[in-house]
Each structure stands twice: as structure tokens, then as C-alpha cells.
Amino acid sequence: MAKSAASSTPLAQKLRGLTGEAVKFGIVGLGGVVVNFVVFWVCINGLHLATLRSNIAATLIAIATNYLGYRYWLYRDRDAASRKREITLFLVFSGIGMLIETGLLGFSVYVLGLDSHLEQVAAKVVGLGLGTVFRFISYRTWVFKALPETPGTGAAAAATGGELAAQAELMLAAEEIRYAKAE
């Protein structure tokens, strides 16, 4: 019984970490949603732009503000060794999220004929929700990658300490063989 409690501890820690991450993601995202809707509303009502143009402009501005929140607050402890790669992936996945949102908005306006401001906002909310789920999964998986755990820290290190030493010995042996073949 003690063994099962010890083995569930890392899972419980991961779930707690994921919950905290999801809450912070939601806070940054909520800020982006506010920016997105304010810009969308100004573009539609103040500038009288077309619906999809307004949505694209609003989403692009929200993407920029969200990147700052994700990089410098939520994922500040993540690997930032390759900012060019990170920004490229962020823009690609944000663009896909924008296509999800804009596609649903365009479908509702131009196919279903739901073109009142309230109906447009409702379609935008649904599209934004679907895009947000996609972004959360893609950002945490591919864009803001976690730094690998260093030996001697955390519960994972205690469980894999022997495995780590064995892997290091295998790597050293492979290097010795490679150098011997080179000579």
C-alpha cells in the first residue's frame, strides 16, 4: 500500500502543476480575450470594417499581447534557448487558432446568415473557445517546452537515479568505441 501512495505522488504533483498552469494560461488568455473583443468591437462599430477583417485585426493584436504574458510570466522558467524557433512556432499555432476562430465566425455569418452584432460576438466566443483549447495544448507541448529535470532534483530524480547512471555509462562506452574507431 505504501508503494502505491509513493507512485501516485508524481502523478498528483503533475496534476497540481497542470492545474496551476491552466489557471495562469486562463489569466493571460482572459487578458487576450479582453483585448480581442475590445479591438473587434472598435473595428466593427467605430471603424466600420468587415467582420472577418475586424476579427483578424483583433486576434493579431491579442496574439502579440498574449505572447508577452506567456513568455514573461507563465512560461518564464521554460527553455528559451531558441527564441526564433519559439516565436515561429508560437505564430504558427496562434495562426491556426485564429483560423479556427475566424473560420467559425465566417461560417456563422456567411453560411448561416447570423450577422447581427450579438450573433457575431456569440460565434466569436465559440470559435475563441475552440481555438483556446488548441493553443493551450500546442503551446505547452511544442512552443514553451519544459526544461529537462536535472539529476538530483525532484521525485523523478529519486526514481531514476540508477537509470541515469546506467545511461551515462552507456553513453561514455559508446563515445569510447566511436573514438577507438576514428583512430
Rank of each mutant, 00 (worst) to 15 (best):
V126L: 14
S108G: 07
F144W: 12
A165M: 10
A165C: 07
L89D: 00
P151W: 15
H117Y: 14
I96R: 03
E163W: 11
L112R: 09
V121I: 15
Y110I: 03
G131R: 02
T132Q: 05
V121W: 10
A156Y: 14
I87W: 07
F90M: 07
A123I: 03
V109R: 14
V92R: 02
Q167W: 09
A159E: 07
T132G: 06
A155V: 10
V125M: 12
G103Q: 09
V143G: 02
I87F: 14
S94V: 04
G154P: 09
L118V: 08
A166H: 13
I87G: 08
M98I: 08
Q167V: 10
G129K: 07
A166P: 05
T153W: 14
T160M: 08
T132I: 01
F134I: 02
T141P: 03
L104H: 01
V133T: 05
E101T: 08
D115G: 12
L89V: 03
H117F: 12
P151R: 09
T88H: 07
V143S: 03
R135I: 03
S138Q: 04
L112Y: 11
S138L: 04
F107W: 10
R140K: 15
A146S: 09
F90W: 04
G152M: 13
L91S: 10
A166Q: 13
M98N: 06
P148N: 13
T132P: 13
T102Q: 06
A155W: 11
L164W: 15
L147I: 12
A166C: 07
L128K: 02
S138T: 15
F107G: 00
Y139C: 06
G161N: 04
E169G: 03
I96F: 15
L89P: 01
R140T: 11
R140M: 02
K124R: 10
A146P: 00
G154C: 13
S116I: 00
S116A: 02
V121H: 12
R140E: 00
A123E: 02
T150H: 13
L128R: 05
T141I: 02
R135G: 05
W142D: 01
A158Y: 11
G97A: 15
F107D: 00
R135T: 06
T141W: 03
L99F: 14
K124V: 04
S108Y: 08
S138K: 07
L104S: 00
A156C: 03
G131L: 04
L89E: 11
F136E: 01
V109Y: 10
F136T: 04
A168G: 05
G103S: 09
I87Q: 09
A146T: 02
E119G: 08
G129Y: 14
G152F: 15
A122Q: 10
V121N: 01
G95F: 13
L164R: 10
V121C: 08
W142S: 05
E163L: 11
V109F: 10
A165Y: 15
I137M: 07
T150M: 13
V109D: 02
I137L: 10
F136G: 03
I100F: 12
T153F: 15
E149Y: 11
Y139P: 09
G162N: 09
G113A: 04
V133A: 07
F134P: 02
K145C: 00
F93H: 11
T102K: 08
F107L: 04
V111L: 10
T153G: 06
L105Q: 02
Q120M: 11
G152D: 13
T132N: 07
Q167G: 00
A155D: 04
